[in-house]
């Protein structure tokens, strides 16, 4: 699928690049469409290129031998999916990724991206900024998973995804919430019921409605 300059401009990392730099990258790039749930990348496989979400979203996750999933990050349009790969000692993917909703991704060959980053200082700085943000994300995730209670994680999840400026209105199953929070569906179900009993939330058919934001914020610190 042909990649246009407009496609490249959708990638946050490329937002500040000069038209000449974008024009040099465009012929090297390719794009591919995925249906909801399609596999984008498999843990343990070599990534052929560095990938960017143009449309839709991608969920990056790891699976335990028992089949339990832990979502590591949800990426939206403009985000890089495997930015460390072109700079890593091995191109083997440390995690898997699937499309969330119908999605379109852009790919650049690893060597071409590495060369571009070494030749364009603005791109190199943008890469470092993105990697720093990712490091911050995983520091927070490690804290959440190891030191925060499931009640706290669920409260935080509800507050984060209820905000009006959430990137896209997503409908979540309890299984998906569990994969985000590092627990199992039964625990999510039990904790939601406890929040209902305590008057923090209300289940209104297909909606989880937050009734007591302050109490939920206090809970999210637990």
């Amino acid at each position: 699928m042909t990649v246009t300059l407009d496609d490249l401009r959708r990638v946050k990392l490329f937002a500040g690049l000069a038209p000449a730099s974008l024009a040099a990258l465009a012929p090297l790039a390719s794009a591919r469409s995925y249906r909801d749930g399609d596999s984008i990348l498999l843990e343990g496989e070599e990534a052929a290129g560095v990938l960017f979400v143009l449309e839709g979203a991608a969920r990056v996750y790891r699976t335990s031998p028992e089949g339990r999933e832990q979502t590591l990050i949800l990426l939206h349009a403009g985000d890089a999916l495997n930015l460390p790969t072109p700079f890593a000692p091995s191109p083997v993917a440390p995690a898997s990724a699937v499309a969330v909703g119908d999605s379109r991704l852009l790919a650049l060959p690893l060597a071409a991206f590495r060369r571009a980053a070494s030749e364009i200082p603005d791109l190199a700085l943008a890469v470092m900024g993105d990697l720093a943000a990712r490091l911050r994300h995983f520091t927070r995730l490690t804290y959440d998973l190891s030191l925060r209670s499931v009640r706290g994680r669920l409260a935080r999840f509800l507050l984060r995804h209820a905000s009006a400026d959430a990137p896209s209105p997503v409908r979540w199953t309890q299984e998906e919430v569990a994969a985000q929070l590092g627990t199992v569906r039964e625990v999510v179900s039990r904790t939601l019921r406890a929040f209902v009993r305590e008057g923090l939330i209300r289940l209104d058919r297909q909606r989880i409605l937050i009734l007591d934001r302050e109490a939920l914020e206090r809970e999210s610190e637990s």
């Binding site: 509800l158 995804h161 209820a162 209105p169 997503v170 409908r171 979540w172 199953t173 309890q174 299984e175 008057g199 209300r202 289940l203 209104d204 297909q206 909606r207 989880i208 409605l209 937050i210 009734l211 007591d212 934001r213």
Partner: peptide, 12 residues
């Protein structure tokens, strides 16, 4: 079987 939910703010 799965039930999906949107998350929002509501009145008590």
């Amino acid at each position: 079987i799965e039930l999906a939910y949107e998350i929002g703010f509501g009145a008590a």
